[in-house]
């Protein structure tokens, strides 16, 4: 079909808008990356706009030297790996039985879960609950306390339901029980859905900071995000208080923070192609319609 002039014009206009939007989304990353490889003085005087100036690895060297940072990094990796494993296990425990329409009491359990989506106890009772359970300042609180997302249970359940019943029926004829059916039929067939659910949990755990900040006091247990938050708050306080008086300090601090940001988002950027593929899938499977 021939495109009219006005069609071409609007296509061009749309392309320009989309390119501008992409630039806005991408620029902060490019800037942070360039600034992390530049000298503090170049960043502070505004010489770094797109490409690094006075290229140096100083910020990365000082990161390597900082113990707390590697400890926090290790903690984040541990919370993400252990937490995701535990979350997936519990999510399967909930999603699989709930996917069986023959299960007595299913509607009740489904309501029991969905209710928590619309009504929560709030910050204080949640905090006091951890206190009563003796979980304050423990790694367990981070791994176990926020293990299940009702949305992901629903998503996985929907996926399980899409697997034809005939597979289960024929396995039952052969004398398989429910656990064997789950292990040998459902789980292998649900790999894409399990990867999606796992990735959503993992990204959430990697990025979470709020409850870790509240529940953990011990410096040796805090994850990367909490440490980063402390550094950023410290820096802006410094700048408020001392202004340009303490420029040298601010200089190294700023590039140091940029380098820390790069190190902390690196794993996410590396798995981003998978993330994108599976998250889009998750959006399609679960549908928000449910």
């Amino acid at each position: 079909m021939k495109q009219s002039f006005s069609d071409k014009l609007s296509s061009g206009f749309i392309a320009v808008i989309l390119i501008m939007l992409s630039a806005v989304c991408l620029y902060p990353f490019v800037y942070v990356l360039s600034a992390s490889f530049s000298s503090g003085s170049a960043v502070i005087t505004g010489e770094v706009l797109l490409f690094p100036k006075d290229i140096t690895l100083d910020s990365y060297k000082s990161i390597l030297a900082k113990d707390g940072l590697w400890q926090a990094y290790g903690n984040t990796v541990f919370y993400t790996v252990a937490g995701t494993a535990f979350s997936i296990l519990l999510t399967i425990c909930g999603a699989y039985p709930l996917s069986k329409s023959r299960l007595r009491g299913r509607t009740f359990v489904a309501f029991f879960i969905a209710f928590t989506l619309w009504f929560g106890a709030g910050l204080i009772p949640t905090y006091l609950n951890f206190k009563e359970l003796g979980l304050l300042d423990t790694r367990t609180s981070i791994i176990v306390g926020f293990a299940v997302s009702a949305f992901l249970v629903i998503l996985l359940r929907t996926f399980f339901q899409s697997i034809p019943d005939s597979l289960e029926e024929s396995a039952k004829m052969d004398g398989a029980n429910d656990l064997q059916i789950l292990r040998h039929i459902y789980l292998p067939l649900s790999k894409p859905a399990l990867v999606t659910v796992g990735l959503i949990y993992a990204v959430g755990k990697w990025n979470s900071y709020f409850w870790a900040m509240i529940l953990l006091n011990d410096e040796s247990k805090i994850p990367l995000q909490v440490l980063l938050k402390k550094m950023i708050v410290e820096m802006s306080l410094n700048e408020e208080l001392t202004g340009s008086m303490n420029a040298a300090n601010a200089m190294s601090q700023e590039t140091f923070i940029y380098a820390t940001i790069i190190v902390s988002i690196l794993p996410i950027v590396l798995v981003y192609p998978f993330l994108q593929k599976y998250f889009v899938k998750g959006t399609m499977i679960g549908g928000i319609k449910e």
Binding site: P28, N207, Y209, I232, E239, G243, I261
Partner: peptide
Amino acid sequence: LPHFISVVIIAGIVTNFLAPTN
């Protein structure tokens, strides 16, 4: 991409970009 970046980092970038002196 920004959807996968933690709010701490976004706040850090915003704070740095808008910092009063530099």
